[in-house]
Nucleic acid binder design. Sequence first.
DNA 1: ATGGATGCAAATATTTTGCATGCCT
DNA 2: AGGCATGCAAAATATTTGCATCCAT
Lengths: 165, 165
Amino acid sequence: MANRIPAAAIQQYSQEHLREVLNTAGRRLTPQREKVLSLFQNLGLGHHLTADDVHHHLKQAGNRVSLATVYRSLKLLVAMRLLDEGEWQEGLRCYELRQGGGKIHHHMVCMCCDHTEEFVSEVITAASRDMSKVAGFELTEVRLILRGICRRCRQRSKATASTFS
Amino acid sequence: MANRIPAAAIQQYSQEHLREVLNTAGRRLTPQREKVLSLFQNLGLGHHLTADDVHHHLKQAGNRVSLATVYRSLKLLVAMRLLDEGEWQEGLRCYELRQGGGKIHHHMVCMCCDHTEEFVSEVITAASRDMSKVAGFELTEVRLILRGICRRCRQRSKATASTFS
DNA sequence: ATGGATGCAAATATTTTGCATGCCT
DNA sequence: AGGCATGCAAAATATTTGCATCCAT
């Protein structure tokens, strides 16, 4: 369903980009920053991790990195547009690898099992651009999240009483 | 631009609904809960407040309410679908009055001045339903956020160097 | 040596929870 | 009386920041 771009291509591009931009600004591509980005690249597109998730993954892989640095790196990578930040699951701030080429994509999140599916819709993308143009708005990002129940979960449970705590 | 519904109608509906549902479940419509909902209703559709904002507003209006209760009330009202929760501005969890009749609407947020505009797009709504149907997904909510720079801010600043901290 | 980046710990900020008390039915 | 809700404070989380130190140029 999603319009995937070869992971290798992205990896090359991102690493290049990152080193280049940082150097130009007199800053560095440290092992920690590289590791954070690599983690997302190895997982591939569509994986959502919290700052804490990232920290755990890196530690588990034997890397020396502090949670504070993870936060700082994530913020940097988002500012450099290599990662996207979002709250796909209620109350959890997560990060994901940004698709190369500025390809706009959307998310379909199951409120039952939290499974996230990505998809691309030219119609929605075009409509977003139209609405922006009309409003004199310079569009930078489109974030669409469809929330509901996925096919699997629907089949599993037929009658569910709606409850509130 | 937004498709507004008479505030009075919503107010009636919500208050009714709230009291009714709560009573049925053996629970109560307390002054605090009423005040939290009223705040959003008085502000009207399209206003985004954090839990802390709500608390401040209520205290300032001379109400006796604790922040903890505000959190609890917001959670309840969201569960009852009277409010929507979202992270429209980076890193801020906000709440807004839910539009009656399940009318789907979207947000256009200026990253410069944080001004938020609402709009309705039948095209996007239809496309969202289509994508869901194809995926066997039971659609409950559509959340679209367009982020960028609004007309005013664009005119104010012409040359802006992109920086990352 | 210079200045950016890191780790650590402390400081903040945000949200949740335990518990005694109050209030409605 | 019985039980839900509240306030308050403490606890649990989440995120940021100060500072000494480390490291690359």
